[in-house]
Nucleic acid binder design. Structure first.
Lengths: 172, 172
DNA sequence: CTATATTTTCAATAATTATTGAAAATATAG
DNA sequence: CTATATTTTCAATAATTATTGAAAATATAG
């Protein structure tokens, strides 16, 4: 497995996995789950739970739970391999649908509940300066949250590449 | 302090603080810090550490540390009040500069290091299918990260309201 | 259906992160 | 400068989250 020129590949892979793990832990996904995601992204073939355990030195339970989370996020899928008893896992490889999928999940998990909460606290009765400030602020926050929601929806619906590319050119 | 009609205000405030705390804990900011931020956002006047401790029932140390974090994020500022020994704190009230500020911080903390890591692992030597897949994937990830970076920069530079409003109209 | 491989669940534990509260540091009044 | 108010730091502790590993559940071969 360890060719001479392969060392660089192994090192680069380790670095990527580390970086992705760090990013993930800033995003509410566990470090291990993010690392599994990175590993699957850069693997040409689908991997089994055992492959993952071996490469990342994690327990079976951890691998199982993390894969479950990643599948809930919609970024990892089981792949059917004929004649094989074990399950094989792969990641979405198209970076744009990956981003779309993540945006969709965040919208569902964060934006939607926040919008609901903001709606619930709109327009409190009263004349004190604190109440006026409260109403002004929650109104603006709701407006902003709704706009973000619209933008995200557009992003999720627009199919991939072309959309943001055009957008970037438009604004440069 | 507790007028009859004020109950609704207190309840609404509590709800907002709770919702913001939840949101914050999905964003790598501590629950308490996010709650302090919410409290300051909807207060007409600047508050002291003691006001905050009393309202949120937290310790002095916690209040001090959380305010420090919020100031690092650039969303809370000290306000000078003449003739007062205590420090007064306020939050940025303009929702758009708030969003801009947060975008800027996330760019600095997450996007920039990720881009650096991706650059470091580009173009590994070798012919195996795994190496080819690795190179393809990291290339696409870097491209995507750079594009995101550009978009965020534009967002941060463009001054508030007008920018996104026009954008939304443009894409609807 | 039985034997075996494989995956999932979950209580126990480890690791990490948040919080307290008091001591130390700093700032201000006089 | 001294006395006092105020803020910050930080070790100890609490709370939360991640991880393990083995038992239970499920799936497949034959």
């Amino acid at each position: 497995m360890a060719y001479l020129y392969d060392m660089t590949h192994q090192e680069a892979k380790a670095k990527l996995i580390e970086a992705w793990g760090n990013l993930g832990s800033n995003w509410g996904i566990s470090r291990t789950a993010a690392q599994i995601h990175a590993l699957l992204m850069v693997s040409a073939k689908a991997l089994t739970t055992d492959d993952i355990m071996e490469e990342l030195l994690i327990s079976r339970g951890n691998a199982s739970m993390s894969l479950k989370t990643l599948m809930e996020w919609g970024v990892v899928k089981k792949q059917f391999v004929p004649g094989q008893r074990k399950e094989y896992y792969t990641s979405e490889k198209d970076v744009w649908s990956l981003a779309t999928q993540i945006a969709k999940e965040r919208q569902r998990r964060e934006l939607t509940p926040t919008i609901e909460a903001l709606k619930a606290v709109q327009e409190v009765e009263g004349e004190s300066s604190d109440i006026k400030e409260f109403n002004k602020m929650t109104k603006n926050l709701l407006k902003f949250a709704k706009q973000s929601d619209t933008v995200l929806s557009l992003f999720v619906k627009a199919e991939s590449n072309k959309f943001l590319n055009r957008l970037i050119k438009l604004l440069k």
